[in-house]
């Protein structure tokens, strides 16, 4: 034992069957699920944006709600990807034994994990895009480069879905995920410039923020939504994509260790 656990993934289009299975389930509950995904970030955006924003001067030259919109699109993408890759995937892996059933068919674990990765990314993208559409239609964000935000949303979803699936493989139960939210996701959203510019923070925390995938997503999404072109586009795309690739491999190894030993 051991060598196969670390073997390179055998990738194929078979992941589509796993992705399609999840899509079929979701379609039955699509409307309430979409509304749920949209309501929470919207309440935050407009509550904080107009409530808190009313007491604040312009932030980086724009109103607070406009500033916040750029961060909110990618942070809600992060939350949606994380929820799907942890709670929902855990239900399918552990509670319902759906993965076990799939693995009895000619499907490999890499197909299952990749299918779940792309599915969580799909749901996260839907969540990010719906907010993007609402803020663009309401005129809170500029429409000029709105379409260019889509790839940013996708790479954010991939990064957090991959890390979430690695957490899923380690989880003994649902309570475990609370630690990840408290210790990783909440600090990430505070350090990445979602709610305030990070030059407010001490230098050491700014340096720490630079390794977080959400920081890079915000660095792309916000300028685009203000109608401008971001700097260092390749770097800001490479970091979340790196998290996605490494996260997927780690998730696969940990899930093999959990299920195939």
């Amino acid at each position: 034992m051991g060598t196969r656990i670390f073997a390179a993934p055998v990738l194929s289009l078979r992941f589509v069957h796993v992705w399609a299975r999840n899509l079929l389930v979701w379609r039955k509950l699509a409307i309430p699920s979409m509304l749920g995904n949209l309501a929470d970030p919207m309440i935050f955006l407009f509550g904080l944006g107009y409530g808190l924003g009313a007491m604040m001067p312009a932030v980086q030259g724009v109103s607070y709600v406009t500033f916040l919109a750029g961060g909110m699109v990618v942070s809600s993408t992060m939350y949606a990807a994380t929820f799907e890759a942890m709670y929902s995937a855990f239900s399918r892996m552990h509670q319902q034994k759906t993965w076990e059933g799939i693995l009895n068919a000619p499907i490999l674990l890499e197909d299952v994990v990749l299918g779940e990765l792309f599915w969580a990314t799909t749901k996260a993208t839907l969540s990010g895009v719906s907010i993007l559409v609402v803020v663009t239609v309401l005129g809170v964000a500029s429409p000029s480069y709105a379409l260019a935000v889509l790839p940013v949303i996708v790479v954010t979803g991939l990064a957090f879905a991959a890390v979430g699936l690695a957490m899923n493989a380690l989880a003994p139960n649902y309570d475990f995920f609370m630690y990840y939210f408290t210790l990783v996701i909440t600090p990430t959203s505070l350090l990445s410039g979602v709610f305030f510019p990070i030059d407010q923070l001490p230098g050491s925390l700014q340096a720490a923020a630079a390794v977080l995938p959400l920081y890079h997503a915000v660095a792309l999404a916000r300028p685009l939504m203000l109608g401008g072109v971001p700097h260092d586009i390749l770097l800001h795309l490479a970091v979340p994509l790196g998290y996605a690739a490494v996260g997927f491999y780690v998730a696969l190894v940990l899930t093999r260790r959990r299920l195939l030993k």
Binding site: R21, L24, V25, K28, Q96, K97, T98, E100, G101, N104
Partner: peptide, 13 residues
């Protein structure tokens, strides 16, 4: 074809 010890039918379907 495989019949596992514990049914793992898909409860969402």
């Amino acid at each position: 074809g495989v019949i596992p010890q514990f049914d793992n039918l898909d409860p969402d379907f």
